[in-house]
Design a protein around this nucleic acid. Structure first.
Length: 498
RNA sequence: GGCGCGUUGGUGUAACUGGUUAACACGCCGCCCUCUCAAGGCGGAGAGCACGGGUUCGAGUCCCGUACGCGCUACCA
């Protein structure tokens, strides 16, 4: 059997849409699973919308997700001549005809209305379809502009078995005579995809469900061109919470994959989340598992597990903490807390470099300290950005981090006694020899007992003095990681806040 | 309007070829742990499977209809 070949064919919109990313993922998974070839092709036949910057966003998204392609990127526009030749071939063979209807007539707003009216009466018949070949040639030779339309046969049906949606059938009378070539000679989408998929030997077309009805037209083209028809698998669409289209215009950056990269997502986590939107592994094999590594995804993937109904990408616009789908956030947190340290470290490094918190010693003499700090912070991080947000107090020497107002009020201003206690605590720490988790705990408890205050008063105040926050890792770990010097100066400094 | 596709708790999904109180994850709520928590542990609420018919001893699972949603219906992709 010939090798399986699939492709991802986005149009260059300037960014990789989450829906597109999932389509790319499913193609990639299918190729990996079947030891096939994954091709990337940019569908740029609409020249008005195409330029290099528009392509870059797509490539960046693919790269970040690690969806490597075996061939490409190819540009559909590079194949114009071949597409045109195919249209001419169809014209020659009588499968297509020239339509001399002036463009202006089609462009005026009434066309849609006319189509609707014509539909009521049955299939609209294009008069140019019956034009004799001789006359058609003469008018073309005279320079009269025309489009080339495919002549859908009068009677019959197209059939195909969609790998996801099952048996599909459509009557020819419900398929319009689609335009193959514009009057300026420019090939159109349906012709171009078919030609390219033929040329690239694509065996399985895996794409969004919005192309399900187009498939019938394309099958007609394959047949007229005398080429074998590939297999098709259409994917349910990813919708906005209101079940409307998920669009950049309406929903903003949340639809773009690079947003997730910049917000501190781990690519595998995002992929994992995307995979489970509209797909589920065979339940007998994988039970109720949610977390799948890239390899496990490849292993478990099957077109049979693809759901038919559209999936909602659940998020609340304007909610800073839950700015995207909560399950995606949860999954990212799972990855952050469980992936191997050697995988996490470079990711955090990049994050800290961006926020100017990185020091090369973290990879050198302070490596052990750094890793230990990460093991504390990773437990509560939802995105890599949290290593900056929550981690800043741990990575700076001075007190250039923010003090959360509520935390100050709750932990530092709660008891005026802290005015005295904080400096005393600082002195005690300054002379502590065993500056370890246990040593610190023993000291804190001892001070609490001596001063007859609750341990909680001291630990909470210390937490906020050291990190500016009300929440975080166990306090004794925090103090140990901060080290003696920073602990002492920050405790003294915090007195001003009481 | 026409044609097509879809419809399981708030969200994502599961439920072998119809068979006990519809399962899991996220989220939500509560309790516990504890020095705090956005972490961890435990528990709970939440759908009777869009609606209406039908077939059957028995239907989320099959059939028909209705509603709703989505897609296509461009000299866009």
């Amino acid at each position: 059997m010939s090798m399986i070949r699939v492709r991802f064919a986005p149009s260059p919109t300037g960014y990789l849409h989450v829906g597109g990313a999932r389509t790319a993922l499913f193609n990639w998974l299918f190729a990996q699973k079947n030891k096939g070839v994954f091709v990337l092709r940019i569908e740029d036949t609409d020249t008005l919308r195409n330029n290099e910057a528009m392509v870059r966003g797509i490539l960046e998204g693919m790269e970040w997700l690690g969806l490597n392609y075996d061939e490409g990127p190819f540009f559909q526009s590079d194949n114009y001549e071949k597409h045109r030749a195919a249209a001419l071939q169809l014209l020659e063979a009588g499968h297509a005809y020239r339509d001399f209807t002036p463009k202006a007539e089609r462009d005026d707003g009434t066309i849609k209305q006319r189509v609707t009216e014509a539909a009521k009466l049955g299939k609209p018949v294009n008069s140019y379809r019956e034009l004799s070949r001789a006359e058609s040639d003469t008018r073309a030779a005279a320079g009269e502009p025309f489009v080339i339309r495919f002549a859908v046969p009068a009677e019959g049906k197209t059939n195909f078995e969609d790998e996801v949606f099952g048996a599909q059938e459509r009557d020819f009378k419900d398929i319009e005579d689609l335009v193959l070539l514009r009057s300026d000679g420019h090939p159109l989408y349906n012709l171009s995809v078919v030609c390219d998929d033929i040329e690239m030997n694509i065996t399985h077309v895996i794409r969004g469900q919005d192309h399900l009805s187009n498939t019938h037209k394309q099958i007609l083209l394959y047949q007229a061109l005398g080429q074998p028809v590939p297999k098709f698998a259409h994917l349910p669409l990813i919708m906005a919470p209101d079940k409307g289209k998920l669009s950049k215009r309406k929903h903003g950056e949340i639809v773009s994959v690079t947003t997730y990269r910049d917000a501190g997502f781990i690519p595998d986590a995002f992929l994992n989340f995307l995979a489970l939107l509209g797909w589920a592994p065979a339940s007998d094999e994988h039970g109720d598992r949610e977390i799948f590594s890239r390899d496990e995804l490849v292993e478990a993937f099957s077109l049979a597990g693809i759901h038919k109904a559209n999936a909602v990408f659940n998020f609340t616009q304007g909610d800073a903490r839950n700015w995207t789908d909560q399950k995606a956030l949860w999954m990212n947190a799972e990855y952050i807390k469980t992936i191997p340290m050697e995988t996490l470290l470079p990711m955090v490094k990049t994050e800290l470099q961006h926020s100017s918190l990185w020091r090369d010693e973290y990879e050198g003499e302070q490596r052990a300290w750094f890793e230990h700090t990460l093991t504390l912070l990773r437990e509560r991080a939802r995105t890599l950005a949290d290593f900056t947000n929550h981690g800043r107090p741990y990575f700076v020497d001075d007190i250039s981090f923010a003090f959360d107002e509520a935390a100050v009020k709750k932990n530092l201003q709660k008891d005026p006694a802290l005015q005295e206690l904080l400096p005393q605590l600082a002195e005690a720490f300054a002379t502590l020899d065993e500056f370890t988790h246990d040593g610190i705990e023993a000291l804190l408890r001892k001070v609490a007992e001596e001063k007859s205050v609750k341990v909680g008063l001291l630990t909470n105040a210390t937490r906020t003095a050291l990190t500016g926050q009300a929440v975080g890792p166990g306090l004794f770990d925090v103090v140990a990681v901060m080290g003696k010097d920073r602990t002492v100066t920050r405790l003294k400094h915090a007195v001003q806040l009481v």
